[in-house]
Amino acid sequence: MPVPRVVVLAGGVGGSRFVLGARAALRRRGIFPTEHALTVIVNTGDDLWLSGVRLQPDVDSIMYALAGVNDTVRGWGRSGDSERVNHELQEWGAGWPWFTLGDLDLGTHLARTGWLRDGLTPTAVIERMSRRWLLGARLLPMTDDEVDTVVVLRDGSRMHFQEWWTRHRAALEPQRFENPGIASATPAPGVVAAIASADLVLIAPSNPVVSIGPILAVPGIREALAATSGPVVGVSPIIGGRVVRGMADVCLAAIGVETSAAAVAAHYGARPGGGLLDAWLLAEEDAASAAAVAGGGIRPVVTPLWMKDEPHSMALAEAALAAAGV
């Protein structure tokens, strides 16, 4: 039996947990995921320069999770990390006092920055970093271009997404989100080919606006999803009318989308109507929305969505694979 080629679009903590589940589900089927079996296209709109180093929060969250070295309590960074360097930076008045960088995490950022300054692309850097651990997946950035997310507030002021998200906890009302330069960006090498050859594309239950949105905004990626022969299955980030984690509801409101499983499905749209989805996994708590999802031309699949631990994440990924007939 040929090994299925699964592509996941992901970002953030929800994305990392789902990717862990996808890897576990493939292993349960007797498939040890390789770069040919499981490819993760990661959001890089969260990236930023801070204290002279390049940070890729979503890339690192997923890499650390697959490596088994992530801090599962805080939800970000490395487990068992210390913060001596971060404290020293604050004593110098450098960096952001509300944006903590662990010492081990800083090692990652320093290595990345050095390689970038040596001329490597983000794709090449991620490939090099991935050699350290047996990840069981190939990680690709959505683009090698810098397209950091900027939040435009109601008063017209602007700030980096990380400041709005981490410092202000999304309490400042956003007017819109921008990724300067994304209109001229290109998909990272391997992204379009991975989607084109996929037996299944999964859209993780990541923030639809600031995690999945930037991926889809890179010219050529949405078109590749529309053209791929494999089914595209999305997983709702909304359970019982509430966001699972973070402040995605504030992001959705800014683009005029209701915080509901059916509304997010409609936001992605059905492939026959020019959208992205063939099927949509929604929680048992949102079963009443299945008819609305079906009415939009998307096949609804009601299943437990809570990813409390890896077995629950694996069960969710299994449901996604089954929905696609893989």
Rank of each mutant, 00 (worst) to 15 (best):
W96F: 13
T113N: 11
W165H: 12
G190M: 01
T121C: 07
V147R: 05
E88N: 02
L134Y: 05
M142Q: 08
E83V: 15
T123E: 08
G95Y: 00
P141K: 05
A94F: 09
E127F: 02
R117Y: 03
A94I: 07
E127R: 15
M159G: 04
R167Q: 12
V201Y: 07
A137S: 08
G114E: 14
R167D: 01
N86T: 05
P180Q: 11
G181V: 00
R78C: 12
T100Q: 05
L135G: 02
P180F: 02
A185Q: 10
F161V: 10
V125Y: 03
T108F: 12
G102L: 02
E146Y: 02
R176P: 02
R112Q: 09
A111K: 08
P97M: 10
N179S: 06
L104E: 12
H109L: 10
A137G: 08
F177D: 02
M129I: 07
D105I: 08
A196L: 06
Q162D: 11
A170D: 06
P97T: 06
F177N: 03
G181A: 10
L106G: 03
W96K: 14
R78F: 15
A111L: 14
W76K: 08
A193Y: 11
A198S: 11
T108G: 06
M129A: 13
P174L: 04
V201P: 00
T123Q: 00
E91G: 11
M142F: 03
G114A: 14
L110T: 05
R176G: 03
S79T: 14
I126W: 07
R169C: 05
T121P: 08
V192Y: 04
P189K: 10
P141E: 04
Q175G: 15
P97R: 14
G114P: 00
L104D: 05
R132P: 00
S79H: 14
T108K: 06
L139V: 06
P189C: 05
V147C: 08
M159D: 10
V147M: 06
R167T: 03
W115A: 14
W96H: 14
L110S: 01
L135V: 10
P187H: 11
T100D: 02
T100G: 00
H160W: 11
D155R: 04
V192K: 04
W76T: 07
P180G: 00
M142T: 05
I195A: 10
L106A: 10
E146Q: 07
V152K: 12
V192L: 09
M129L: 15
W98I: 04
T149S: 14
P122D: 11
G136Y: 07
E88C: 14
D148Y: 10
T108C: 11
P141T: 13
T108N: 13
V151L: 07
I195N: 03
W92T: 09
W96N: 13
S130R: 00
V152A: 05
S130C: 09
W164V: 01
A94T: 01
G102Y: 04
I195E: 11
N179K: 01
D118N: 07
R132I: 14
L104R: 14
